[in-house]
């Protein structure tokens, strides 16, 4: 047996005990980190789809301008493979990590359900307003849980963009969607990646 176990009651004072508890708790404090991959991957992918559809629709008059969104299931598969691989490497699960996972799984389901509602009801006119609202919820709550201010600010900006988007035309909603992703996913995602790199 190692020294730590042999020391059991004899040399282990209440003060040392308290110090040990503090030391161990501080070791888990830095385990709270969120992978910036998801923000960067989805941020750039959806941003390019918004801008792509805008260019195809407004400048090129391409009738099937919405084809760009077929990239979403491809993104879903890539993201799914990545998260499966990450889960296998993961040695520790914090409560914040679980809360973030449940939040984003819930939002991912909402994105799919909203796409179905918009397609079946043929009411794409305000779809982006609701998508931006979902980005706002996701990034605001994640930012609060991670105590990472750029995400919180990005979320708040998106709440404002939802209001603007409600009165905008479909074409302008595409540009507002791209702006929403830039402020809530892409910029905070890059900042989060830099912050994680510094921590390591």
């Amino acid at each position: 047996m190692s020294q730590s176990a042999n020391n059991e009651q004899s040399e282990f004072s209440p003060e040392e005990s308290l110090q040990l508890i503090r030391q161990m708790i501080s070791k888990t404090r830095h385990s709270v980190a969120m992978d910036s991959f998801y923000f960067l991957f989805w941020g750039w992918l959806v941003f390019l789809c918004c801008v792509g559809q805008y260019v195809l629709k407004v400048y090129w008059d391409f009738p099937q301008h919405y084809y760009v969104w077929f990239l979403m299931p491809v993104g879903g598969v890539i993201s799914g493979i990545y998260s499966y691989r990450q889960a296998r490497k993961q040695q520790v699960v914090t409560y914040v990590h679980s809360a973030l996972s449940y939040l984003w799984v819930g939002l991912a389901i909402s994105f799919i359900v909203l796409a179905y509602v918009s397609i079946s009801g043929k009411n794409w006119q305000h779809a982006f307003t609701y998508y931006i609202l979902l980005y706002a919820i996701g990034t605001f709550v994640s930012g609060r849980l991670l105590q990472f201010r750029p995400l919180v600010i990005g979320g708040l900006i998106n709440f404002a963009l939802v209001v603007i988007s409600a009165g905008a035309s479909y074409d302008n909603q595409l540009l507002l969607g791209a702006l929403a992703l830039l402020t809530s996913y892409i910029i905070p995602g890059h900042l989060l990646r830099n912050a994680s790199a510094k921590k390591l």
Partner: peptide, 16 residues
């Protein structure tokens, strides 16, 4: 009240 067991429980208290 044993160093290693207390260390383990203190670690796990903040983790899922």
């Amino acid at each position: 009240h044993s160093q290693l067991r207390l260390a383990v429980v203190s670690l796990l208290i903040g983790l899922k």
